[in-house]
Design a protein around this nucleic acid. Structure first.
Lengths: 191, 191
DNA sequence: AGGCTCATGTAACCGGTTACATGATTAT
DNA sequence: ATAATCATGTAACCGGTTACATGAGCCT
């Protein structure tokens, strides 16, 4: 459901092609809403059928032709209505298959659980690295828009940072506990 | 996909009815994997068909009859195999319609965005309150199991705590920025 | 009588993923 | 040549949600 509103929200800033939307998702929304390009094109078709957006083919000489979509008044209303609903209780919900694996970690040897957590930690660091380039992307994208919008984009980036940092600190704590448990065992074995 | 493994994981601790599984989800796994009861019953049927679990009807005098499920050897293998795969890159992914609304917050008056964030903050506090009773539930559930498992359950609870606390701190920062922005405007309007 | 816990499902739907498929243009 | 970027889709599938539906037994 939210992909539709993500697209509407982007088109509310100005007309865009499906490809533009894909790029916009990759450089901003992806951090909290990953979207397949196939899904985006599918959704664009749906939104057009509903009359929330309309597309116009633009013939390009230097590049393949494209279809540029614009939001309609109905689409704007729909989008604003969604926004106005505010935060649902689901905002605090968090689905994670990884945490499920941690939950069942007792079924593996501690060393294996620790490895899993280390892998997670590495992934977090990688993610943090990728994220560090986003603020620049945001400035670029927002250059000729009201600076005012950028603040909100920054809010979501800040959330991402805090989230990942929290993940890393948590993983460290878990790994430490698992390692100290391992040392205890080793120590006793040596005795 | 993960619901299936959540169920397998629970049944790996011992036989349970669908109702038991629903309760177990509510008191532990729900924090990172919410499941509808209808979905659980559906999944149980699927898992039985695949031969990963099997159910036996238990006739009860004082209560409605129930069907108690046990994990099979194949099911155990499947579950262990899933566990052994470790953390996927998707572990760092985070889907949130709420953050999408924050991202598009510039389309609302700042006061409205602030309200949304305040609502979110309240929901977080509520969630924190609910979570504080979980450690006890975990101790209960784990009383006659190896204490060793409990550590991992605690890991996921810790994650939840850190996550929510992080949410609250972040929301506070955002709200403050929006309020200071509002003051500026008011100040200028007064001039 | 009414509400709670225990207990189990079905049917329709849909958001999203995966895999597949194509093709123009530009830069190296 | 060939890789990269630009550009757009289709088809099959499936995990999960929503709504609906039922009913026994216990407690007050």
């Amino acid at each position: 459901m939210s992909l539709a509103f993500g697209i509407l929200g982007l088109l509310n800033y100005g007309p865009m092609s499906g490809y533009d939307i894909i790029k916009a998702f990759e450089s901003s929304l992806q951090f909290f809403w990953h979207a397949q390009n196939s899904h985006i094109y599918l959704e664009l078709k749906k939104l057009e059928k509903k009359g929330y957006i309309f597309g116009e083919t633009v013939i390009q000489a230097d590049r393949p032709n494209k279809k540029v979509f614009s939001i309609t008044e109905t689409g704007k209303k729909e989008f604003m209505n969604w926004l106005a609903k505010g935060a649902g209780e689901d905002a605090t919900h968090f689905k994670s298959a990884f945490l499920m694996k941690v939950f069942f970690g007792g079924n593996m040897p501690p060393a294996q659980s620790a490895d899993m957590l280390r892998k997670f930690r590495t992934d977090c660091e990688t993610y943090l690295g990728k994220m560090s380039v986003t603020p620049k992307a945001i400035e670029n994208y927002g250059s000729n828009k009201e600076m005012y919008q950028i603040m909100y984009w920054q809010f979501t980036v800040d959330f991402g940072y805090g989230f990942i940092k929290n993940c890393i600190e948590w993983a460290d704590r878990c790994i430490q506990k698992l390692e100290s448990l391992d040392e205890q065992n080793t120590g006793e074995a040596v005795k």
